[in-house]
């Protein structure tokens, strides 16, 4: 029981996975790792994460232990009628990305549009590539 008090210090936000066990079967959804593209430019790393059906209220992006964690539980209603084909299912999403030292944690920006979460992780200014001007002494 002393363990519990320790855990209370940092209350974990309700996640899809954590809720899953206690919520009724109708709302329980498996948690999957969403598809993502990750690339880098000179001054930032960028992520494009597919979160179909997710609205701004359903998603949480946070930094914990040098990891960027994305969690989302979309509210997708079940269509009426009989299932004739099921190639995808509504799921909850969770994925974490390790942040390197050159990531500027305070300047991270996340934007959700059309079910795609775009995260911009700028590099610290001092870590960006720089061109040094060559001075020519005559």
């Amino acid at each position: 029981m002393t363990k519990n008090t320790l855990d209370c210090c940092a209350p974990r936000p309700a996640t899809g996975a954590a809720n899953g066990a206690s919520t009724p079967a109708t709302t329980r959804r498996p948690t999957v790792v969403p598809r993502a593209d990750i690339w880098e430019t000179d001054c930032a790393a960028q992520l494009a994460i597919e979160l179909p059906g997710v609205t701004q209220d359903d998603v949480q992006v946070r930094i914990e232990n040098d990891h960027l964690i994305v969690e989302a539980t979309p509210k997708i209603d079940e269509p009426e009628g009989q299932v004739r084909r099921l190639e995808w299912r509504a799921t909850a999403f969770r994925r974490s990305f390790a942040l390197t030292d050159d990531a500027d944690r305070d300047a991270i920006e996340a934007d959700l549009k059309n079910g795609l979460l775009t995260v911009l992780i700028p590099r610290r200014a001092e870590k960006r590539p720089r061109t040094i001007e060559v001075r020519v002494d005559t």
Binding site: A48, P79, G81, R85, L86, E87, W88
Partner: peptide, 23 residues
């Protein structure tokens, strides 16, 4: 793109999974 298809008495409902598309 993957889709789901539901059939009711009055209509078919199709849902395509297409995140990140400009409408």
């Amino acid at each position: 793109p993957p889709f789901t298809l539901h059939e009711s008495e009055l209509a078919f409902e199709v849902r395509f999974l297409l995140p990140g598309v400009d409408p």
